[in-house]
Design a protein around this nucleic acid. Structure first.
Lengths: 338, 338
DNA sequence: ATGAAAGCGCTAACAG
DNA sequence: CTGTTAGCGCTTTCAT
């Protein structure tokens, strides 16, 4: 590795015949520098190909201009065919890009990587940390917040940490109840559900919404639990069909699981929506192309990412008006599957 | 932002009643420290919750323990329904995780972000830089390599930079020729192609392979160019149908475009594969579930990521046996669409 | 085996 | 408006 000597501030200063401080001012865009000197410095910077050393700068400014997004999932999961993560990342990315902050994406699906990520954040590698797809009562957001690192979450934390953390979430309950009501209006009465993982707020809330809606209608239904993946949707659907072969509708807590359910129903010889109505939750692009196209509850995932990033930018710039909780609306999108 | 005082090496040293140097040795796992002292230091570290300041450490070691993956694409593109990027990232991630290096993912789809990424790398924020999905003759890999930053590319650089850069690629030509030969063996004679973007090696090589295979068979065919997206596949297929309504096969340079082509053929009332055979390139998971399931050339994208990461790890650890060029095999996967 | 001391490259008072 | 001067927190010779 031939790490050629990179020019320092000192070198530029000598070349331009000024002090280091002056070069620093020019490089950082101070306006209180004489034009002639500024031009001379810029020329020297150009000639030497000078780029400030970030470590040295961070050491004194205590800032890195970069922000981490931590996903407590394996890379295989984050970068699978599940379109939830890409959407969050896209939203975050859009805002951070606009603010000229560097996004540092970190997967923390294993205990080892979880630790590594913790050390990374604690070491001051980033100015703030955003979390998405949190499981259970992860102590990390709380501990980072406690030691003074700005933290924001996408998805309401399951157990509110002692240090309150700003978050953004969507209206799970409203979306689910609209979905179930739609099924009821269609005359469906044997409505089952495939719930999401019960260590995640999105899984818990959507199941709660389903139960409430059914109870309000004086009905009960069968429940199966998945983990938001397509495969778990297949399994859960088979289970539900075994428990109640006469079911006529199923509310599925994610589009990926719903696609699995469609496949399982097809395998079982059921027609959708003639025999069984299916409603998902997400509204991914591909849900328009499934067979049949999926009726689903749309949640604004990209907006969640954007909102979370905006909250973070507010925190790191000491804005005082950072909303502690933002809840975005959901909406039923009707297609052929229900 | 309540940045609570983080303990420094100094604080730990005082607490343990030793010098900073000794604490540094313990923290960095030096073996030449008396057991009693080591335990005392570790206790102090624990009590104070000490975590080394990365900026200070990097300033002296000149290393950051993190590696960048630069994708010269917009975040919207990287995190869309295209499964190429996730697969590369997954591969890279697996290797870096094992080596306990931090992955820094950077999108550089705009001129502004391209500049930002360049400054970021030059500022010594990372120990090395990996590129994937390169367009045209991007000067960035070359300039980074020239100033001594380890660089590796996924996909052979279009114009070999003066500083040779290790890369990994797949056998585009072999894959394409097998695809075309398969179509010929099926009796297809009016074989068109939807090529990839001609500013990318993957686009150019696959088109070249198609032309060669057709010429060898004494045939000619219609060509349309897309940009690897589904939408461009739809458009290109419509164009090809207009140019040659009697075409009986189409080799498509990516699975996403092939899915678009399937859709366009369906819209045009053509049956696949009865009227028109379709072959894609990638072999994404979803291609097994398309209608009909897609015959395609499988390329080992995850392996490309892994290989590239291994090359990088070799470079940053000064291994001398880093292969300059690795070419991975491709394979025809036959399903119902051809 | 441990400590003292010298920076790594930069920014930010503070003078002038 | 510009230069001088102190460090930021850490690693690493060099002595001891």
């Amino acid at each position: 590795m031939v790490t050629r000597e990179r020019p320092t501030l000192e070198a530029v200063a000598r070349r331009a015949g000024v002090s280091r401080a002056t070069v620093s001012r020019v490089v950082n865009g101070s306006t209180t520098v004489a034009v002639a000197i500024r031009d001379a410095v810029n020329a020297a910077v150009e000639e030497l190909g000078y780029v400030p050393n970030q470590a040295a700068r961070s050491l004194v400014t205590q800032r890195t201009e970069s922000i981490a997004l931590i996903l407590p999932e394996t890379a295989s999961r984050v970068f699978s065919d599940d379109l939830f993560f890409p959407a969050v990342i896209r939203g975050v990315s859009l805002e951070l890009e606009a603010a000229d902050k560097q996004l540092v994406l970190m997967m923390a699906g294993s205990v080892a990587s979880h630790d590594r990520v913790e050390r990374y954040a604690m070491a001051g590698h980033v100015d703030g940390v955003m979390f998405a797809s949190m499981h259970g009562a992860d102590p990390l957001p709380g501990s980072l917040a406690r030691i003074g690192i700005p933290v924001v979450c996408s998805g309401r934390p399951m157990s509110p940490p002692p240090t309150p953390i700003p978050y953004v979430d969507v209206d799970h309950l409203g979306g689910v109840s609209r979905a179930v009501e739609f099924l009821l209006a269609k005359g469906r009465r044997r409505i089952a559900t495939i719930a999401g993982p019960q260590d995640m707020v999105a899984g818990v809330d959507r199941l709660k919404g389903y139960r409430t809606a059914l109870r309000d209608a004086g009905l009960t239904g069968h429940e199966a639990v998945g983990d938001f993946t397509r495969e778990s949707g297949v399994r859960a659907m088979h289970q539900l069909l075994a428990e109640d072969p006469a079911l006529d509708a199923v509310f599925v807590a994610s589009d990926m699981m719903a696609h699995g359910a469609l496949q399982a129903l097809r395998d079982a010889g059921r027609r959708v929506p003639d025999d069984v109505s299916v409603i998902g939750f997400d509204d991914f692009e591909i849900s328009r192309y499934s067979d049949p196209p999926l009726t689903t509850v749309r949640q604004p995932i990209v907006d969640m990412g954007r909102t979370m990033a905006r909250q973070m930018l507010g925190l790191v710039t000491d804005k005082l008006d950072v909303p502690q909780a933002v809840v975005l609306p959901t909406e039923l999108v009707v297609r052929e599957s229900a």
